[in-house]
Amino acid sequence: MSSPSDLTTGRRLLRWWLTFLSHHRPALVGFVLSSLILLVAVFGPLVLEHAPDTVFGRFEPQGAEHLLGTDSQGYDVWARIVHGGRVTLWIALSSMLLSLTLGTIAGAAAGYLGGWVDLLVMRGVDFAMSFPSFLLAMVAIAILGARLENLVLAVGLVGAPIFARQVRAEVLRVKTQEYVTAARALGFGRVRILFRHVLPNCFAPIVVLGTLTMGSAILDVAGLNFLGLGGDPYTTPEWGLILKQGWEKRPLGNLQVTAAGLAIFLTVLGFNLLGDGLKDELDPRTRRR
């Protein structure tokens, strides 16, 4: 089994992907689950009958008209869950990408430049990791203000140190490889070597970590929203907020809590299964056979 870094064309990448999925059953399940949810989140709002902020009667029962009934505002719960998928995934994706970008830059700089940069970055990482991440996100929200858009920043910032640590370790490993030495011998610039030779070869672990971070980001965002440290409960549909509304309206909102919780659970499960599978496949330490 070869790792994707050896492959350059999209075709070979696709073939590698298909082989991977066909022999790793949990990853296949995870892939199907997360793509299904992604599809519903992206295209669902286009085919939905109701908009998430159309006001119907309050607490209408579930049925053909309203698949999951309506909530205390008269909003269609199913419409809000589908739209909420878009919002939730978008927040999780943005915060993950933020962590990834910040972490990769810091980690690459630390690993590649070494010296005092390395020392500074790694002490910073150690420092950030001396707070439990959820607490740190809460404090970040306290500083930034409890708003939905600030959740991206808070969760994204808190996730960055893990990426930095991982990328640094990878860069340190790749740096000593022959092709990097060769590039250096050819007189290539440091920046060019970093971007053309070192970082592309750190790609695999970043993808693995990114997939797994999607799952934890969804959980963190929903958790912060549930605590009231996110957006307003009704203005934008988000799974954690939908769950919170239902929780406050128990027992009438029980179905709403169940549906929103299930949505979060299945999405996180999908990303975790996929991430674990990729890790098994790509991480040289845990690779099978």
């Binding site: 799952g215 769950l243 029980n254 659970f265 975790n272």
Partner: peptide, 22 residues
């Protein structure tokens, strides 16, 4: 066992709390 472990890390803890209470 693996399934239990995977489900365990994917469950939103506040939802689990809701289910436990219910």
């Amino acid at each position: 066992g693996l399934t239990v472990a995977l489900v365990g890390v994917s469950l939103p803890i506040f939802w689990l709390g809701f289910l436990a209470v219910a």
